[in-house]
Design a protein around this nucleic acid. Structure first.
Lengths: 118, 118
DNA sequence: CTATTATATCATTGAGTGCTGATATAGTGA
DNA sequence: TCACTATATCAGCACTCAATGATATAATAG
């Protein structure tokens, strides 16, 4: 039904979206929308554990969504592309309209109290 | 670290992205970019099984990404919002630049032969 | 060199979730 | 009504993957 090249692009697209589809990664990306941060600053901004952050950053970097830069013993991360910010903004717009539906979607519930660093 | 309302919006955003983060759902959405289709047509277009399609359609509908409309014994589905098309297009653009990185990201591999209706 | 701080890696565990096959529901025509 | 087609639902399995805690690496300070 799908040619191989189309199937490949589909997988790439899904993979890219998957980078955004987790609250931890999303909060990392949100934190980086302002300015580049090092890992410690991201930990402080999100309240997630260091190893968790580091794992997600590894994925985000591999997937090309963020870029890392060593400065002394700190590693600074920033969004890899301005359009990532556009993408997040566009989703916020769409969300404003479909929020009710998304909120009522009980198919894939978020676990109670997960990702809760407060 | 995050206020409750911010945390909620984060979860909604992640949930919305998750709608796009699966090759099956993505190929359904791609199929619907052209024109509204009924379930049988979507099955033909994607090569996925009927029950699989139906499950994903249920999720996409609950999440507000598609809208369903009964016509006789057929159920037609269409994209819920023009910006969903914009979103997909924007991702294609970003993908063109970061594709290499995404392709090389081996952290979350797609299973061999999965979603392979050909 | 040694201690300390910053970040990365890895194994494990447990929850999430995509797929299938069987079955149920519902609309249509004879 | 009965047969047929279109779609939805559900249980179960297999696989994915996020989180943790322990450990490793690396940079700097003293």
């Amino acid at each position: 039904m799908l040619l191989t090249s189309e199937k490949l692009e589909l997988e790439l697209k899904a993979k890219l979206f998957r980078g955004f589809s987790d609250t931890s990664r999303l909060s990392i990306l949100e934190a980086l929308r302002g300015k580049p941060l090092n890992v410690g600053e991201i930990v402080a901004a999100t309240g997630l554990s260091q190893s968790n952050i580091s794992n997600h950053l590894g994925c985000l970097r591999d997937c090309g969504l963020v870029i890392s830069e060593q400065r002394g013993r700190y590693t600074y991360y920033r969004l890899a592309d301005d359009r990532i910010d556009s993408l997040l903004r566009l989703v916020e717009e769409v969300l404003a309209d479909v929020a009710k539906g998304v909120y009522q979607c009980t198919r894939y519930e978020f676990p109670e109290g997960a990702n809760n660093g407060e």
